[in-house]
Design a protein around this nucleic acid. Structure first.
Length: 430
RNA sequence: GUGACUGUAGCUCAGUUGGUUAGAGCACCUGGUUGUGGUCCAGGGGGUCGGGGGUUCGAAUCCCCUCAGUCACCCCA
């Protein structure tokens, strides 16, 4: 250990190399958000502890980094940004033009044990639409999500957007007389179906409090890995009133089709998204062998929970950790992230002209080009070596008023006077 | 919070049944090159062998504790 200190468990240092990757991911998220018509917002990185516990209960507090400030306030570092979003929107809801289409890339902290795809500090892209009850809002979010995946170079063969429905489960469980208070337990069980081996799941189901009829219908629903709305109506409309729910799913699929992303999407009733605050459609972007790379859904009562008006809302989150693993495995991380790629490296080929070097560097920088020079005078060979290591596209050898431009990749050299060069330095970068 | 596995240079790893001064490749720096980079050659810096304790004449090696990493469980907002 060179230092007496190390990075805290579950955190990452971003050296320039890692920083380039992080920026690549975040820039892509931001670009996609903006072109999908979302506006960026942010919130404080800590909030009152209550904001995070009010909707999920006390047990969530164990997974929070919380502290008491000098004024005795109980605070916590944000583990997600949705409660802050709800707070912000609730506060100004009457002044905000609808729809509220906002995105953010918050840095979040959760005091969980780190493992594959999960750290204690990470970045998460959040995209939300508030104030639009129409399922179109959900389609908007799913589109943005898919658009980002596509922008990263992923294909439907790599990632599937699996879409489920909480209300459908609610309706079916009601019709089976499953008590409301047990509903979350059942959904938690359903959620496990994804990751457990089949026999282990069967065991859990058998050990549950459910009777044979309930078990059988649940099993049947879960068998629909690739269900269509027609199938759902045929199989269940006689049993329960799911007409409205299925109609909404059907509309959603229509929108996704019109958006041209139907091949990414599939109805999958096994997706229920843990407990949380979801009230409608839910979805997860799943890559084989990984935890969900993105997940979201409709949460129509969250604003009320934080004391705001009844306002519908829907959105998703995508974490940088799983995404990074996925892109790395698929070989989709851009290769040119590896070098710094300086435009010009200016060299004093003779002694005594260093002020001119600085002048030229300054002019280039003012012109919008990245330019640099040595910090310790060395001979031309050494300086060229430095230029190479810095990833410079061109070296500019300066002696007197004349310059010699050297294109590093080809080794080609051209003599030119300074005025002509400064007229259009970009010409040398093509 | 529970469990399993793993910690030797910045990175990837050697290191004999416990044996005296812990190595290699890559990377980095310097020189060969008062003047044209990448190649090559030579040299150099960098380790309390994750940390602490124990066993022993002697520990990178064996034992205990601890920290960290990885993976799984719990959880997944």
């Amino acid at each position: 250990m060179a230092s007496n200190f190390q990075a805290v468990k579950g955190t990452r240092d971003f050296y320039p190399q890692e920083m380039r990757l992080r920026n690549y991911i975040i820039d892509t998220w931001r670009r996609v958000s903006l072109r999908c018509g979302f506006e960026e917002y942010d919130a404080p990185i800590f909030e009152y502890l209550d904001l995070f516990t009010v909707k999920s209960g006390e047990e969530i507090a164990e997974q929070l980094f919380s502290f008491t400030d000098r004024g005795g306030r109980d605070l916590a570092i944000r583990p997600e940004i949705t409660p802050s979003l709800a707070r912000m929107v609730a506060e100004k809801i009457n002044a905000l033009p609808r729809p509220v289409k906002w995105f953010s890339v918050p840095r979040l902290c959760r005091a969980e044990r780190p493992q594959r795809g999960r750290l204690r500090e990470f970045f998460q892209w959040n995209v939300d639409v508030i104030g639009v009850d129409d399922i179109l809002a959900d389609a908007e979010c799913i589109f943005a999500c898919v658009e980002a995946l596509r922008e990263f170079g992923l294909t439907p063969a790599d990632v599937e957007m699996r879409i489920g429905s909480r209300p459908l489960w609610t309706a079916v469980l009601d019709s089976l007389a499953v008590p409301t208070e047990r509903r979350d337990d059942v959904l938690a069980l359903v959620d496990k179906r994804f990751k457990l081996p089949e026999d282990a799941f069967d065991k859990l189901l058998a050990e549950s409090f459910l009777n044979d009829e309930q078990t059988s219908v649940i099993r049947d629903l879960l068998s629909h890995e690739n269900v269509t709305v027609e199938q759902l109506l045929t199989d269940y409309s006689g049993r329960v009133d799911i007409g409205q729910t299925v109609e909404r799913l059907s509309q959603l699929l229509g929108y996704l089709e019109a958006y041209g992303i139907a091949e990414w999407c599939v109805l999958d009733l096994r997706v229920v998204r843990g407990l949380a605050y979801y009230t409608g459609v839910v979805y997860e972007a799943i890559a084989a062998g990984e935890r969900a790379v993105a997940g979201g859904g409709r949460y129509d009562n969250l604003l009320q929970v934080v004391g705001g008006p009844a306002e519908s809302a829907t959105g998703f989150g995508m974490g940088d950790v799983v995404l990074g693993i996925l892109l790395d495995e698929k070989g989709l991380l851009p290769a040119d992230l590896a070098s710094e790629s300086l435009n010009f490296f200016v060299i004093d080929a003779v002694e005594g002209v260093f002020p001119k070097v600085l002048d030229l560097v300054a002019r280039l920088r003012k012109g919008g080009f990245s330019a640099d020079c040595h910090t310790r005078r060395q001979n031309v060979g050494k300086q060229l070596k430095q230029a190479d290591k810095r990833g410079a596209r061109c070296s500019v050898l300066l002696s007197g008023n004349d310059l010699r431009i050297k294109t590093m990749a080809s080794g080609e050299e051209t003599d030119i006077d300074a005025t002509t060069f400064l007229d259009d330095p970009g010409k040398w970068l093509q």
